[in-house]
Design a protein around this nucleic acid. Structure first.
Length: 287
DNA sequence: CGCGTTTGACCTGCGC
DNA sequence: GCGCAGGTCAAACGCG
């Protein structure tokens, strides 16, 4: 594994896997061997040479825009794509990468169902209504996928997550785990799976934005975060919720080392940079 | 006891 | 309509 250091991770990645994660767009990879100042860590890079506003702008745009995912993507082309039900739909209609499929039709359908008399169905309908309302509220959430070289699947990112499901992934021996943020009213979800092509790579897909502080940062667990421009930005604007850069940044931090410093191989990071990866590329290559 | 995980069932959308 | 696959739910269970 160590011999991979210095090797660009931007290798031909399995498009099928990208499709599964809506990662069919440009992927930006940051290499950060620890000892090479020219290839400093993601964290250090942000700390020292990144203009936060630029990156923030990039993220803000990419997150708020309905063009998070291009309408023309491999997902649409690849029928075998997992999660294609929602992703294909959104990518061909709303250009969204969100799987919530939060359209009104769903809500109405559920409302009709609630008229059933069967108590079981009633219960179910109630639940469905709740889910629909949540979906309605949530609408389209931006998604960001991260490739992380790690031996542990669930990387520590400072937030608390509750696992609510696990599914076997087609064509992959590794299951996909579904996590929800345990914070109340926080609808952020994430999926964690291991690349079947490169088992050392953990693919984490985040959906939504946290509407609360990162618990770990509040406890002062991460000096890296505290000293970072991202953290400063997020912490100074709590009312509007942590920005995505902050969220992103917290994910990029080697916080997994907090969880298991000995076992983590935090070698490479890569991000999905939806539409502005060019800009980000500039940002990261400016040094 | 509270919280988190596991896991089978269920729902939904899509393609054939 | 049926089968498949992704996504979610919730009861059961485990752990501190």
């Amino acid at each position: 594994m160590s011999n991979e250091e210095g090797k660009n991770l931007y290798q031909p990645y399995d498009p099928f896997h990208y499709n599964q994660l809506d990662m069919n767009r440009s992927i930006f990879h940051q290499q950060h061997p620890p000892l090479d100042p020219a290839l400093m860590s993601f964290t250090n890079f942000f700390d020292t040479s990144l203009d936060y506003n630029s990156l923030s702008r990039a993220f803000d745009v990419s997150c708020s825009s309905s063009e998070v995912i291009s309408p023309v993507d491999d997902v649409s082309k690849n029928k075998a794509s997992c999660g294609g039900k929602n992703l294909n739909q959104s990518s061909t209609t709303q250009n969204s990468s969100v799987s919530s499929s939060s359209n009104e039709a769903v809500v109405e359908e559920d409302s009709v169902k609630s008229n059933k008399e069967d108590p079981k169905d009633e219960e179910r309908s109630k639940k469905q209504n709740i889910i629909s309302k949540k979906k309605e509220k949530r609408q389209r959430e931006p998604r960001f996928a991260f490739l992380t070289k790690s031996e542990i699947d669930h990387l520590e990112d400072g937030y608390r997550w509750r696992k609510y499901g696990q599914k076997a992934v087609k064509n992959s021996p590794y299951p996909r785990s579904y996590y929800r943020c345990t914070s109340q009213k926080c609808l952020v979800k994430k999926r964690v799976e291991r690349s079947y092509q490169d088992p050392s790579v953990v693919i984490t897909t985040y959906e939504g934005q946290h509407n609360h502080h990162c618990p770990a940062t509040l406890r002062g667990h991460s000096a890296g975060i505290m000293s970072s421009p991202f953290y400063a930005s997020a912490s100074t604007a709590p009312s509007s919720g942590p920005t995505l850069p902050h969220e992103l940044f917290s994910h990029l931090l080697p916080t997994n080392s907090r969880a298991d410093p000995a076992s983590v191989m935090y070698q490479n990071l890569s991000l999905q940079m939806p539409d502005h990866y060019g800009l980000l590329q500039d940002l990261f290559t400016q040094k």
